[in-house]
Design a protein around this nucleic acid. Structure first.
Length: 458
RNA sequence: GACCCCUUCGUCUAGUGGCCUAGGACUCCAGGUUUUCAUCCUGGCAACACGGGUUCGAACCCCGUAGGGGUCGCCA
């Protein structure tokens, strides 16, 4: 295990606290359920999870559902599903913040009694008095696990509301109190919370609680280098799932977005990530999502999938298209596209023609490769050769095609593409001979005929 | 505007004063895999934001400048 490099807030550097060595690391993910789980938040969850696992500690979930407007059961379900999908299991029971209101209010009462907070009618939107926390009037600084020492002068910090005039606790109070309740030792969250941290530290101290360690992750930005907005649309975990990304791949990619192991490893198993993950190796500048790299990484994971799992995914993908293929045939088809599929979403379009003659032709391919002089004759000759074949297996087809190319004095480029398009409508796909063999002679002949009829009549 | 923070190839990053004529990955380009597309392999293009210091020596330390971001709610 690595050396603990974090200092306790306010502790003289170099000292070791009694019992520190055996203090159990506890991190948490504390999202407010809004129905969409943003990848920025998900990455924070991943880092919390990784950090806890790395230290043999616990990873907790707290649902900050005090905003009754947005926190619907449906939204909570979406959140839980996203975590489950990514394999982010949490320890113990989830804590729902809405159940903690009494404790929050009681704490505010105590602060009031101690003179650490006061009541005030601030006017404006609210009606009546709210409870305001009194900042202690001293500079605050802390050692951020990622950003290093951060400090703020007393003059730049104002008192803030902890209980609304309608009697409900505000985020700062609830968040800090719940972290105390859950005995969170390390708060790893987004950059957008650094300003809050100064206030939170003051709250911890006023509450007489030990201040946890903080670490602030830089933001994730869109392809334009700007913060994600609703407009970008594609930054919710559910979107990535729909686009056909594997959870393990997304997990790996997100882990690498703002962190690196320090060597050249990139495709890393989860256990491997757990083993080497440290906050010290986190980047302190924003990271931009690159869908192409994610896609590449996803392809790596697709290829590593055990055959049965890959097949299950394929069956599922086809099922969603309303295709319920005969298993044995389907397995032979899937094997053909095994190492060319990058995402789950690639599957159905790539193999659809195997299961239905009612496929569409790629217009560009038709124009470029099919509607050309001599193609009709080539297809007819190839068809005749196929008809005459004793068996329609891969080796025979391959031999036939090669023989024909040679005998006709043509290039492969003049023969293979037209045949491929004739039977699949596409200009790319699995190797041609195995493709034809799996498709079967009857279909191949039929499709060649049909293609000639549709596109190559004089 | 105030306060905090950030700045290495297009992107993710390695790099903590000499090993850096800056390494890897994605993308892109070229060639190869007995001449289809893709995969795969090999090679290539491509960066220390700028200006000053400090030092024998700076991507690495200091100071400025520029650009970018976060926060400034009785939201979370």
């Amino acid at each position: 295990m690595e050396r603990e490099t974090w200092q306790n807030h306010g502790a003289p550097s170099g000292t070791r606290h009694a019992g520190e060595w055996k203090m159990k690391v506890r991190t948490r993910f504390a999202p407010s359920p809004t129905g969409h789980v943003h990848i920025g938040n998900m990455r924070a969850a991943i880092y919390n999870w990784l950090f806890a696992r790395h230290h043999g500690g616990e990873f907790l979930l707290r649902v900050e559902d005090t905003d009754r407007e947005r926190s619907t059961p449906e939204a909570i379900r979406t959140l839980l599903e996203a975590m489950d999908w990514l394999g982010l299991g949490f320890d113990g029971e989830a804590l729902y913040q809405s159940t903690r209101m009494e404790a929050h209010l009681a704490a505010a009462e105590t602060l009031l009694e101690k003179g650490l907070a006061y009541k005030e009618d601030k006017g404006g939107t609210g009606q009546g008095e709210c409870v305001v926390f009194r900042m202690p009037g001293k500079d605050v600084s802390f050692d951020d696990g990622i950003k290093g020492t951060l400090s703020k002068a007393a003059a730049n910090m104002q008192d803030f509301v902890i209980v609304r005039s309608n009697g409900t606790p505000v985020f700062h109070l609830a968040n800090v109190l719940d972290d105390i309740e859950q005995e969170v030792t390390h708060v790893i969250r987004g950059d957008d919370h650094v300003e809050n941290t100064f206030r939170h530290i003051a709250l911890y101290e006023a509450l007489g609680a030990e201040v946890p360690k903080f670490a602030h992750l830089p933001m994730i930005v869109n392809a334009q280098g700007k913060p994600y907005s609703k407009r970008d649309g594609d930054a919710f975990v559910g979107d990535f799932r729909e686009k056909g990304f594997l959870p393990e791949a997304l997990f790996n990619y997100l882990a690498l977005l703002g962190w690196s192991p320090g060597d050249d490893r990139e495709v890393m198993a989860r256990e491997e990530l757990v083993e080497v993950f440290t906050l010290e190796r986190c980047q302190s500048s924003p990271a931009q999502v690159d869908l192409r790299k994610l896609t590449w990484m996803n392809g790596e994971y697709m290829q590593k999938l055990p055959a049965v799992e890959f097949e299950a995914i394929c069956f599922h993908a086809l099922g969603k298209e309303g295709i319920d293929p005969e298993p044995e045939y389907a397995q032979r088809v899937f094997a053909l596209v095994r190492d060319r599929v990058k995402t789950v979403a690639d599957i159905a379009p790539m193999v659809g023609f195997f299961f239905s003659g009612d496929f569409s032709y790629d217009e560009k391919a038709v124009e470029k490769k099919l509607r050309k002089e001599g193609v009709r004759g080539i297809l007819q000759q190839v068809k005749a050769l196929f008809e005459a074949l004793p068996a329609f297996d891969e080796a025979d087809i391959d031999r036939t095609l090669h023989g024909f190319v040679e005998q006709a004095g043509l290039g492969f480029g003049a023969v293979m593409p037209p045949v491929r398009i004739a039977v699949s409508g596409q200009q790319s796909g699995p190797d041609l001979a195995p493709l034809l063999s799996v498709l079967g002679r009857r279909q191949v002949l039929e499709r060649i005929d049909r293609t000639i009829g549709a596109y190559l009549q004089d």
